[in-house]
Design a binder for these strands. Structure first.
Lengths: 257, 257
DNA sequence: TTTTATTGCGTATCTTGTACACATTAATTT
DNA sequence: AAATTAATGTGTACAAGATACGCAATAAAA
């Protein structure tokens, strides 16, 4: 279901979508040791938001989250995880007190509509390779682009909390689930995999112990030595043993990093 | 906000409450080695439900959950944890196909109202001492009572999944957070505490190793030896060091059980 | 007094996490 | 071509933690 006319959506959207309830996606992108997050901006406003949307009356909330992610990134079949539902009373209010917001054309159009209501938002997170995604703004936004997680712009609503909670959840999930299948190329080196973990955890790890843990998990398949990047010993190339990878995903044992 | 008239609520409730969104509470009760869950039943129907309710337009979702729990149990200031939001399309549907449901007086009254709509439900869990709670049915229910977790009655909607998810979440949280402050009397013995853990985890633990872990956490204060229950050596009485207990709650290290 | 079941406290062992040493490799430098 | 350099691959030592289990102390019952 595509929103083709913003004003029609503002006026009649409640026919197709559930009011008072939205979904916001913390879409984290990784590439070459850099962790970014996808944010959208309203026209004529400074603040940025997580990409969000509404739930069709005929789709599940998981489906809605998948659809929103696909609309913003063009990517389908991404691992998307519900992590928290945000329902504080003041999650939108602080912004209504800002005068520059009241003059905003889009906000004036929304005022009084079904969108101008107290809204509970279900948070989802995804972890993708940002080089494979092409950010597309939705009809409400002037821009949609990646931001380095370490240098975020001013955020609207309770989205700082949403981002923090998403990152905390990912780091906790990392202790239980392997990461990398959707983020690294088909073939990769162990240092590349380690770099991913170090970026997500925001700290350095010991090479040798990291290798040991991955070998214990048994999710790596080593190929013939190849890639010669730098001016030193060339590392082996690996792929994920996808069957084993998925076994470990459903496993309950946790690792320490 | 109390619902005094069921039919007024069915007709005008949407003025005060958010439609399409509900809260269901998995209220787990423990006492003397028995784990129970609080369930409510519709009049003239076999199926049982988790106690639930709607969110006032002027309260946070956490507040709504607290209020619902207090209405059902009379208990305030209980540790209540949001654990998952359920939004499958078919979470209510399977029941609509049952003929005995269509003849139900309450269901017939609801048909066509704002309550007869696709609903997303936010799940919360609580862990309390069931001997301190007095179950009270709400206006929709004929009965509200404790059920042994091992012998549940037939459940409506997706509530079997909700209960399973709640139990899985509690068992996972047990690895990180201590349990017992709201469940045991002011003074208790270590075997009593261990029994609580064994009941929640549904398996036996080694006495000596359990004691060691509790001592490591440092949340126990030993009193003068007293309680003489059985016909053998009488165990020491302990209390929680509440300050330390709360420190450990916010800590991130996890224990293995 | 003896028996029995339970509690309290300890130790041995195995597993796991962590720190770090050293050999291997490949491009660069001399 | 040999030496240098910086990275990768593998192994080992130590510490911390988890687990298994032994044995004395106690209190009520036999």
């Amino acid at each position: 279901m595509l929103i083709t006319d913003v004003h029609a959506f503002i006026q009649h959207g409640y026919r197709d979508f559930i009011p008072h309830l939205s979904i916001d996606c913390a879409i984290l992108g990784y590439h070459d040791g850099i962790l970014k997050i996808l944010l959208t901006a309203w026209p004529d406003l400074d603040g940025w938001c997580l990409p969000g949307g509404y739930i069709s009356r005929t789709e599940s909330i998981d489906h809605a989250a998948q659809r929103i992610l696909e609309e913003r990134t063009g990517l389908a079949d991404v691992f998307l995880q519900q992590y928290h539902t945000f329902g504080q009373m003041n999650r939108v209010l602080p912004l209504e007190e800002k005068p520059e917001f009241h003059d905003n054309p889009l906000y004036r159009a929304i005022r009084g509509s079904w969108l101008d209501a107290r809204t509970v938002s279900i948070g989802y997170y995804a972890l993708i390779d940002f080089s494979r995604a092409t950010p597309r703004p939705d009809e409400f936004s002037r821009e949609c682009r990646w931001w380095d997680i370490r240098e975020l712009p001013p955020l609207l609503f309770d989205h700082p909390l949403m981002i923090k909670t998403a990152l905390d959840t990912i780091r906790k999930d990392l202790q239980v689930h392997p990461v990398g299948l959707q983020l690294l190329p088909e073939e990769f080196t162990v240092p590349e995999l380690q770099r991913l973990y170090e970026t997500l955890l925001n700290r350095t790890l010991d090479r040798r112990n990291f290798m040991k843990k991955m070998q214990q998990l048994g999710i790596l398949i080593r190929h013939d030595r190849t890639r010669s990047i730098g001016s030193h010993r060339s590392p082996y190339l690996y792929s994920f043993d996808e069957e084993r990878y998925r076994e470990v995903l459903t496993d309950q044992r946790n690792m320490s990093f």
